[in-house]
Simulated scan of single mutants.
Amino acid sequence: MKCSPITMSLAIALLFVAEPASAGTSVQQLTADALHECALGRQAQTRAERVQHFAQGQAFGEQAVEKDDSSPDAHFSLFCNLGEQLRIDGESLTSLFGFRRMMKELNRTLELAPDHLDALSAKGTVLVRIPAFMGGDKEKGETLLRQVIAREPAAVNARLSLAKSYCANGRHEEAVAIATKALDLAQSLQRADFIPEARQVLSQLRAQAAKGN
């Protein structure tokens, strides 16, 4: 039987999933490894590479959570990889089960650390992107994103999410300005995991702004 592209990608990824953590591997190390894989996955050039990195990152994150369920960073590292797996083929929601599992980890992060800025940024992003019947709230999401930016001036992802939300509401000039700042920050901070997305978002927003004018 011939494998579909998705099945083949998952099969390849499973070959590289992390081995179970040794008793001496710290939660901090597992969390760092999970976040590193998430960042590498964002930078990967091919779908197969992205699947591989996020699957490995998920394995590290699961091990971190298993060792310490009270660690907000462990839960966030797992969320990061689960969320990116849902975005591999674009922004559309492809798995309700996957979405619920992702949100479980995000909500657990904020339950343990209500001021976790990365998690707040992610929460705001989710709220502006998902439909209302699934719990989306564009106004609340934008407020969260603005709060994150105010507290962390170097926030890149929050700016990209806010820019896309503004564009969807017809606020094209503001969207382009915010996305431009996000790209400048990503480049100056050498955030290689965000630079490609920032460039793509800015290009798309400029095109939308041109149409709007």
Rank of each mutant, 00 (worst) to 15 (best):
Q45D: 14
A119G: 09
L82C: 06
V51P: 00
Q63W: 04
R47T: 15
Q28E: 15
F54L: 10
A113N: 08
E37A: 10
L93G: 06
F60N: 12
A132H: 10
P114V: 08
Q28S: 13
A132E: 14
K138P: 01
F60Y: 15
T94M: 02
A59Y: 02
E91W: 02
M103A: 06
Q63V: 09
L96Q: 11
A122V: 12
G90S: 04
E142P: 07
Q43M: 13
K104W: 04
E37M: 11
V51Q: 05
G61H: 10
E49L: 07
F76I: 08
L120V: 04
V65Q: 15
V65D: 13
H116G: 09
R100L: 03
L40F: 08
E139Q: 14
E111V: 12
F60D: 14
F54S: 00
G124F: 05
E111H: 13
A132Y: 02
S121R: 11
P72T: 00
R129F: 03
L82P: 04
Q58W: 03
A55H: 03
E62N: 09
M103D: 00
F133I: 15
A113S: 15
N107A: 01
L86C: 05
R87L: 15
A55T: 09
H53M: 06
L30W: 03
Q63G: 06
A48S: 13
F133S: 10
L96E: 10
L86N: 02
A64V: 08
K67G: 07
G90T: 01
G83V: 00
T109S: 05
A122N: 07
I130G: 00
R108W: 06
K140T: 14
G141F: 07
G141Y: 09
R50D: 02
A119I: 04
D137E: 09
G61I: 12
F99D: 09
L112Y: 10
E66K: 15
L112Q: 11
V126W: 01
D89F: 00
G141H: 05
G136S: 08
T46E: 10
Q29H: 08
K140E: 14
G98Q: 05
F133T: 11
L96C: 01
V51N: 03
S70E: 06
D115R: 02
L82Y: 07
D89I: 01
K138E: 13
R129Q: 13
T94F: 03
D115E: 12
E49H: 07
G141V: 09
